[in-house]
Design a protein around this nucleic acid. Structure first.
Lengths: 123, 123
DNA sequence: CTGTTGTTTAAGCATATACTTAAGTATAGC
DNA sequence: GCTATACTTAAGTATATGCTTAAACAACAG
């Protein structure tokens, strides 16, 4: 099982631009063609297509062409991968705070010091 | 109340690099000095400081100097801002699926079509 | 076949990123 | 004061990004 950590760079890169986030926001309301995506954006169609490539490289968006129109849709799994990465670190941060609070509680109430074996300063 | 949408670019940019995510990961386990952050990384201290500046520009990390050592810590609020932005779009995407399922259910069971007034194809 | 629509590709350009090395500054300890 | 430690700053460089314009191309519509 290969780590997909390698794919996180282009994934987060895809989010790091206002225009691309606007496109993701649009696609969260449902699939859209390239020109529908471009319509509210103040730039050339060509630029939009390039942003689309960045979004696809990040795995955030997939698309398929039918006739002459390319329909784009959001990839919720990739969205979830990004969200989870952040949530995991927030969780670790909070757990550390919990342990800190526990440690401080033991200092206040030494009788409970043995609940969780832990070194305490004896100086 | 000014939108903080402007700050999302540098926020997500901060996540878009393996080295910086490693630093965030380290800081999720607790505060660290600049050299502690740099120690596991295969690059110059100078490069690490520059990554740190990107993290601070994104609001993900804050730091303060005491004596000659700068201590860095994670900013959970900024982490939450990024997570929430993604979660909100995922939520919108799922709600659209729900409405779609509802619509299809009405098609299968026309008696319930009036529960939620909605146009249906008559062709 | 001919034009319009929807996209695609290529080339070019200004700025931003991700480093490097080298030199500088500010404590802390002896 | 002298020296090691912990950064800090500056300058340089290679590659990446975010656009632009112009020129295809492909699929309908008449």
């Amino acid at each position: 099982m290969l780590k997909q950590q390698d794919r996180l760079d282009p994934l987060f890169q895809a989010f790091a631009d206002t225009t691309r986030r606007a496109m993701v926001d649009r696609l969260s309301k449902g699939p859209a063609s390239v020109s529908e995506l471009a319509e509210p954006l103040a730039m050339s169609l060509s630029a939009v297509v390039q942003h689309l490539q960045v979004l696809e490289a990040g795995g955030l968006v997939s698309s398929q062409k039918v006739g002459r129109v390319r329909t784009c849709r959001l990839e919720p799994l990739a969205m979830g991968t990004a969200e989870t990465w952040i949530a995991d670190r927030l969780c670790a941060w909070e757990q550390r705070l919990d342990r800190l609070a526990e440690f401080l509680a033991e200092d206040r109430d030494p009788d409970r010091a043995n609940d969780h074996p832990r070194q305490r300063s004896t100086s």
